[in-house]
Amino acid sequence: MTITVSIALYHNDPLEVQEAVCSCLSSSLVKRIYLIDNSANNNFRSFAEDERIEYHHYPENIGFGAAHNQAIQLCENSDYHVIVNPDIAFCGDVVEQLTSFMDQHPDVGLAMPKVLYKDRRLQRLCKLLPTPFNLFGRRFASTSRWAARLNEQYELAFFDYDQLADIPCLSGCFMFVRNTVLQELGGFDPRFFLYLEDVDLVRRIGQVSRTVFYPFASITHGYQKESYHNRKVLRLHMKSAIQYFNKWGWFFDRERKRINKDTLKKLMRKM
C-alpha cells in the first residue's frame, strides 16, 4: 500500500505547516509528502529534513490547484493520494481508517473525514452543488431571508454529521482520493487559481465514483474565510465563481439539479 500526500504552501504560518507535516508523517502508510511552495522565498525548504519529504519551489505562485497537480503528476503509482491544507492537524489512525474504508469500498473515489475547528467545534463542510444564488447570495445578501433559506439547504443544515453519507460537494482541506481516479481526471483544473477548484474536482470525481463523508475519523482545520476580509482575495473568489459557472452552467444545469435532488432525498430518508 502506497499513500502520497501533497501540501501547497504560500507564506503560511510555519508552526501550522510543521503540525500538518508531522501529522502526515505520523502514519507509516504515508510513503511520500510533497511540499509544493508558491512563496516568494524558499524558507519552507528546511521542513524537508525527513527522507519521506520532497520539496518543490515555484515562486511565481502557480496557484493552489496547479501546485497540487505538480505532486499528482509525480505520484502516478501510489494507491491513494491525500490533498492536505497547511492548517490541518490530526492524530491517531486517521490515514489508516480512511485507507481501510476505501479498500473495502472500491466504488468510492473520494472520502473526507469529520472536520473540526481547533476548539473542537464542528465545521459543516458537507454541501450540495452550488448555484449562483448560493455563492453570491450568501456573500452579498447574507442577511436576507431568501438567502438564508437557500443557504440552509445548500449547507445541509439538517444533516447529522455522525452518519456516513454520499455528498456531492466536500471541502478541499483534506481530500483522501483513490489515485487511479485522480490520475484519470488529471487532477485539478488549473484554470481555477484559488477557490472553487475543490468544488470542481469533487464534482468531476462524482461523475465516475462515489464521494463520501466519513464521520468515524476527525481532523482539525484552521479555516479562515480570507475572502471576507481581503479585497484582493475576494476578487479571486468571484473570478473563480464566474469560471465555475461558465464551465458547469449558471441557472440551467440539469446534472446539478438531479444530483442535489437525489442527495436530499437520500439524506432525508436516513433521518
Rank of each mutant, 00 (worst) to 15 (best):
L267M: 13
L122H: 05
R269P: 04
L182E: 06
I219R: 01
Q183A: 11
E155H: 14
V212P: 00
C169D: 14
P59N: 09
L182T: 08
D189W: 02
K265S: 12
Y58P: 04
D37G: 03
V181Q: 01
E16F: 13
V199I: 13
A48Q: 08
H81I: 01
F188P: 03
R204W: 07
F245N: 06
E51I: 10
L29Y: 15
Y34V: 06
R138Q: 11
Y244N: 09
S142Q: 14
W146P: 08
D189T: 08
H56F: 10
S46M: 15
D119L: 06
I36M: 11
H57M: 01
C126V: 01
R124G: 03
Q163V: 12
T263S: 02
G186V: 10
M102L: 15
M238P: 03
P215S: 04
Q70M: 14
A141G: 12
H105P: 00
H237A: 14
L234D: 08
Y10S: 10
A217D: 08
H56I: 07
S6P: 08
V202G: 04
C169P: 04
R121H: 15
I72K: 06
K127T: 14
S144W: 12
L185T: 05
E19W: 13
V181G: 03
P190M: 02
K118H: 13
L110S: 06
Q73A: 10
P14I: 13
C24P: 02
L194Q: 09
T99L: 10
R203P: 02
K265W: 11
N246W: 14
L201Y: 06
Y214R: 01
Q70K: 09
Y154D: 03
V82R: 00
Y195V: 03
L128D: 02
E152A: 15
F158L: 09
K270R: 13
I7E: 01
H221D: 13
L116K: 07
Q243V: 10
N230A: 12
S27Y: 05
K232V: 11
E54G: 09
L267S: 09
H81N: 00
W146Q: 13
T143G: 09
N77H: 10
K265F: 14
N230S: 11
V181E: 04
A40M: 15
K265Y: 13
I62W: 06
Y161T: 06
I259Q: 06
N61F: 14
N69T: 06
P86K: 03
